[in-house]
Design a protein around this nucleic acid. Structure first.
Length: 691
RNA sequence: GCGCGCUUAGCUCAGUUGGUUAGAGCGCUUCAUUUACACUGAAGAGGUCGGGAGUUCAAAUCUCUCAGCGCGCACCA
């Protein structure tokens, strides 16, 4: 093919090829040719509509697309369903930030107008995200694109809630929950991030009533003493045996509170005596319930002191802390302060400090649900890859607490019977993704045909937040596990091992990479680094390698198309001309043996989700065994009348096999070359090479 | 505090059940230019496999231990 340029140009080819695929309709399983009885369904991990995709999404969806394309070639009826997630708090936050640029808050707009703004945002970024996936080459069935706030999806969320309610798994009540003062909402236990901070541990003397004795307690949060309802000690602590059930006069407040014994208290920590603030600490609230202590809420939702006294009420927390410390110091009750480092809970969306406080929220009882998920994991019905994630999931499910599902934000699914006050945790709807996207709770044809799915690809940071919840939701609502294999891919870090972050400017834009190295090069480079590792230190050189590899393939194809009769190529590509066994020369035997090995290695490694091994095997075979050795050898043999026919056939046969093997990884360039071979079909649906 | 993972060439990483001179990509050195491809080819330098101890005929690989890094969980007062 003299007319093919020596340099392959991804930019010119990729868009053109993608349009060809779209026109073929083959991304939609209903349009796939041939008898396809085995189903292969995969749901995309729906990206949040908060912004554009990052390089981690690129890796995740490259993995998914590779699997999907492999299974399509294997003859499966393949559905890869795309979509996006409304991402409650996260999206509300970015839109608020956007408004702030105009000096506006969401309250200035009011709920209705603000939600309109978010829908506008969603139109824009939802489309950008889907376009990015197309640029990457993802072969999703776009006709089935879903959004977690679609009208049908809203029905699914309602149905799920009512189902739980009927089963008695929903309750509403006053509990100590994690409250984000900035976002003005409750959060679940999973939506916190703990950050180590240097602080102080203050020791207070609490006077014991009718005596000159004290009990000394240690705290990192002096201001919470305003809500103290007891002092607790461990029942086995010999130091405090005589003190239990005596009465303490709470300083400043002058409230009489008991000394109680509770095994939750750690004898080793501080003085072994702990102040109990039932309304502002989860552990304390448990002790309070066990010991029938009253709950007094002294910190409100906007972080001000309430219900204490005229001089304290209305103070900010920092002011209250200073005032408490000053008064205690004055009364000589502040006996010690020491440097102390501890983990502070922060909101995973806005990073502000979490305030535990008593609040009326909706909960889902987790024990029976977790038990179902645990059984499925332990029996191997669902499997984690790499398997080391199994105990991580098991551990969480075994110790899980009830799930606080109500949020006080505007953007989200309304809790059906909660008036207009509460919306659902965004993960409540995400948990339904594998079946709600197929029409559940309606018994749709798609649900019947494509559920359960085969696998899911996920980052490890949402293993509990999303994956575990999908498992128990699937079992609860459909009676089946939502997927069989969970592929936990590596997290991409910066080159020096730091977290990639858009705000820190350490993120990598996949579109920029695609512009530089092509989608094929980017995909191959990402997978080339992808083993069973939990981190990948991003190495742009690997993407360059991917691009060069594409160009190598291009020139291999140019050489073969120039030197082998196009009719031979076409009939090999169509599968009409197979290789006879009498491949005489030693070099021929060698290359064909190597090819068989490579088919085996690549297939096996796709099956076990080791994409690093698969891409390395392809690279080594194509570049070193085929190009460096066999093709060089072929230059002589093609001039020799006795060997030229068989050499030409082997070249054609190997090229065809290579294109197929490489197609799931580098779909564009392989499809483009395939289109030159005169095979009258698209590579996307040609059969995977059999050994 | 409990648990998981990582530490191999200058950089980013492979190394299957322990078995001949430990591999790749990038980088580096030398050579090759009317060659399918310079986004190339050929040759080469470069590693006491984080430290220490142990098991074994044999350890990058198994055990223990120490150190550093990353992550998960926790009722971190």
């Amino acid at each position: 093919m003299e007319n093919l340029p020596p340099q392959y140009s991804p930019a010119e080819t990729e868009w053109k090829i993608y349009q060809k695929w779209l026109a073929s309709g083959f991304f939609n399983p209903d349009n796939l040719p041939g008898k396809r009885t085995k189903k292969f369904t995969m749901m995309i991990a729906p990206p949040n509509i908060t912004g554009s995709l990052h390089i981690g999404h690129a890796l995740e969806n490259t993995i998914s697309d590779t699997l999907v394309r492999y299974h399509r070639m294997k003859g499966d009826k393949v559905l890869w369903l795309p979509g996006t997630d409304h991402a409650g708090i996260a999206t509300q936050n970015v839109v608020e930030k956007d408004l702030k640029k105009q000096g506006l808050t969401r309250h200035d707009l009011g709920k209705e107008k603000f939600l309109e703004k978010i829908w506008e945002w969603r139109e824009k970024y939802g489309d950008i995200i889907l376009d990015q996936l197309k640029t990457l080459g993802c072969s999703c069935d776009w006709s089935r694109t879903r959004f977690t706030m679609d009208p049908e999806y809203q029905e699914a969320v309602k149905a799920a809630f009512f189902h739980y309610q009927e089963k008695g798994l929903i309750y509403q009540g006053e509990r100590v929950i994690n409250w984000c003062i900035k976002d003005q909402t409750a959060l679940s236990d999973l939506e916190l991030e703990y950050v180590e901070e240097k602080s102080k541990l203050w020791y207070f003397n609490y006077p014991i009533k009718d005596s000159d004795q004290f009990v000394t307690v240690a705290t990192t949060r002096p201001e919470t003493m305003l809500g103290d309802m007891a002092v607790a000690v461990n029942p086995d602590d010999s130091r405090y045996q005589e003190m239990v059930s005596k009465i303490v006069i709470l300083p400043i407040i002058k409230r009489e509170i008991p000394i109680i014994a509770d095994c939750l208290v750690d004898k080793e920590f501080g003085t072994g005596a702990v102040k109990v603030t039932p309304a502002h600490d989860l552990a304390d609230s448990e002790m309070a319930s066990r010991n029938n202590l009253p709950f007094l809420k002294v910190i409100n939702e906007i972080g001000r002191i309430v219900n204490v006294s005229a001089e304290f009420d209305g103070l900010k927390l920092a002011e209250a802390r200073a005032k408490v410390l000053a008064e205690l110091r004055e009364q000589n009750l502040l006996v010690k302060e020491e440097e102390f480092t501890h983990n502070i809970a922060k909101c995973y969306r806005c990073n502000s400090t979490i305030e535990p406080l008593l609040s009326n929220q909706w909960f889902v009882k987790m024990k029976p649900l977790a038990a179902k998920a645990l059984a499925a994991i332990k029996s191997g019905e669902v499997k984690y890859y790499p398997p080391r994630w199994t105990p991580v999931a098991v551990d969480w499910l075994e110790n899980v607490r009830d799930w606080c599902i109500s949020r006080q934000i505007w953007w989200g699914h309304p809790v059906p019977i909660a008036g207009s006050n509460d919306t659902f945790d965004t993960w409540f709807s995400s948990a339904l993704w594998p079946f709600a996207t197929l029409g559940w709770p309606k018994a749709t044809a798609d649900l019947k045909e494509y559920y359960p799915t085969q696998m899911i690809t996920s980052a490890r940071d949402i293993l509990h937040l999303w994956i575990s919840r999908m498992i128990f939701s699937g079992l609860e609502f459909t009676g089946e596990v939502p997927f069989k294999d969970i592929i936990v891919h590596a997290t991409i870090q910066t080159k020096d091992g730091k977290r990639m972050s858009k705000s820190l400017g350490t993120g990598i834009d996949p579109l920029e990479m695609i512009k530089k190295y092509g989608a094929d090069g980017t995909r191959f480079g990402l997978l080339y680094q992808s083993f069973e590792n939990q981190e990948i230190r991003f190495n742009e050189d690997a993407l360059l390698m991917g691009k060069k590899f594409g160009n190598k393939l291009w020139n291999i194809a140019r050489y073969i198309m120039t030197n082998v009769d196009i009719a031979v190529l076409a009939s090999v590509a169509k599968g009409e001309l197979t290789l006879a066994d009498e491949a005489g020369a030693e070099s021929a035997k060698q290359i064909l043996t190597k090819l068989k090995e490579t088919i085996l290695v690549v297939s096996k490694n796709i099956e076990i989700f080791n994409f690093g091994n698969a891409t390395h095997a392809l690279y080594d075979f194509i570049w070193h065994d085929f190009a460096d050795v066999y093709i060089e050898e072929s230059k002589k043999q093609l001039k020799d009348d006795t060997s030229k026919d068989s050499t030409a056939k082997i070249l054609a046969h190997t090229l065809v096999a290579i294109l197929k093997l490489l197609h799931p990884f580098m779909p564009f360039i392989t499809e483009e070359i395939w289109s030159q071979l005169g095979a009258d079909t698209m590579l996307i649906i040609t059969p995977w090479p059999e050994n």
